[in-house]
Design a protein around this nucleic acid. Structure first.
Lengths: 267, 267
DNA sequence: CGGTGGCTTGACGTCGATCAAGACATGTGG
DNA sequence: CCACATGTCTTGATCGACGTCAAGCCACCG
């Protein structure tokens, strides 16, 4: 399951744009890694996509090399293309290194709904674990890159290293909670409240990754947002316009600036 | 983390009503368990709540005793009471042995929404893994009993026994997929479609557990159903009445009989 | 340049929420 | 046993939030 050549590939890749964007350190000096260095690396990796999964923090020196066998290969996904599709066999999970993606589920009658938005640093593909087949499709909202984490290898590593097992469980658990919260949004909130909740969610996740909470690009179309929020694109558009008139936000197209955070929190 | 006294408690408990209902075998003869017996036990346990978690199938003889250290204690929860509440510290997951429960999430403004329905045999408490604090409350819809599975012990066992780790991952993954499907229901379906989908879901889960797919008691109130499906209790009631007039179902109060399964599938 | 996809805004219709009343079941105390 | 309160369910009447349909604008791109 482990793929040693992939490590080499990863190490040899030069730090391109995507690399910088995600804050990845160069990873050529494998033998010389110390615990202290690892800690520093982890700090530099505040927006690093592997942070959620690999969690270098708290690992002993001899555990780190094992960890490296996991970070196998990367893959870039052009805007509009699918990282995986509903029905594909599941064999890896992914860490979004740069860009953003949506996850989409299709009803048997063909209707499709956006079930999630993933920003850089967030995991993808967990929907495949239960049935060995992906339940959703993951589509890039912009040119994106992912780390590929072979599930088989990850499982083995979970058994060897408790902190990785822990992180894996928390990752899965976090998605469960996130989705429950979204069920709450869809089931209980008005259109205005849904849009506000969505903007606040993205804002907060941006902040967590060290970016601006007040200003960002929403790569989703109005239609995607509507689908995700259980409403039509027209209602999304109207709601955003109304928010703007009320002085809560400032939008032009996909660019959003949050003007009155507290106002947005109060519906 | 393991609690040996709990095992004793469990072993000493006599097989009461709840015990029979869930099809649990007596568990006094620990030393004498053989693989063959375990297989038979697993078969008898088709509706057993531990089946999802413990998965005796496929374990070797020396693994079984370890397994038994996990099945620790039981707890009964009277109708209307909470197994755990949102905000409680997380330290165990649960397997619903008999009865049924709802999971409820509360918005900060006080509005609350039913986020899940659990029938006998299904897991509970996974919402606590990510933050070590429960994100939902679990409330019994009728007098119910659960198995308590200490999470710390379960984690250790996952590292020892691959098949348990596998089962744990699948359990978490299944909840992710289930919730995504419910997001789809809430986001894309009409009121009629939601109610139909809900009835079909319960019917199918009943069938899976060896009960009738065509006839069952919904312990939820109309209000609970409405909350779960993102609509008001009046709309739920009207929809059920209309289904009845159309000859799709036959309901009186909480008792539901599905008359025309195919018709129900077609909205 | 025309074509296309995305966004906005308006007019109108409808599905489901809200308000209200009454039926029915269940439980509790007298 | 009844009287009464309480919770649940059903059904009707009305209203409003949001969907639908339609038109026009803009940015982008071949």
């Amino acid at each position: 399951m482990l793929n040693p050549t992939a490590v080499t590939r990863s190490s040899n890749r030069s730090a391109g744009n995507a690399e910088r964007a995600a804050g990845f350190p160069a990873r050529g000096n494998r033998g010389a890694v110390t615990v202290r260095e690892a800690a520093r690396t982890a700090a530099r990796c505040s927006s690093c996509s592997m942070r959620q999964i690999c969690m270098p923090q708290g690992l002993s020196a001899q555990e780190l090399p094992k960890l490296e066998t996991l970070i196998c290969s990367a893959r870039s996904v052009p805007r509009g293309e699918a990282l995986y599709r509903s029905g594909d066999r599941f064999d890896s999970i992914y860490a979004l290194r740069s860009g953003s993606m949506k996850t989409v589920m299709v009803h048997r009658d063909g209707r499709e709904q956006v079930t999630g938005l993933r920003l850089a640093g967030e995991p993808l593909g967990l929907d495949g674990i239960s049935a060995d087949v992906h339940a959703c499709s993951a589509v890039a909202l912009e040119d994106s890159t992912v780390c590929i984490v072979p599930y088989g290898a990850l499982k083995l590593l979970c058994r060897e290293i408790g902190s990785i097992q822990e992180r894996m469980h928390k990752l899965l658990g976090a998605q469960i909670v996130t989705e429950a919260a979204q069920m709450m949004v869809l089931g209980s909130l008005s259109a205005d409240e849904r849009v506000a909740a969505f903007l606040l969610d993205v804002s907060q996740r941006n902040a967590q990754r060290g970016y601006s909470w007040s200003e960002f690009n929403l790569r989703m179309t109005r239609e995607d947002m509507g689908s995700y929020l259980g409403m039509t694109l027209e209602t999304v558009s109207r709601t955003l316009s109304r928010f703007q008139k009320r002085g809560l936000i400032d939008t032009q197209g996909k660019h959003v600036r949050i003007v009155d955070l507290e106002g947005l929190r109060q519906v």
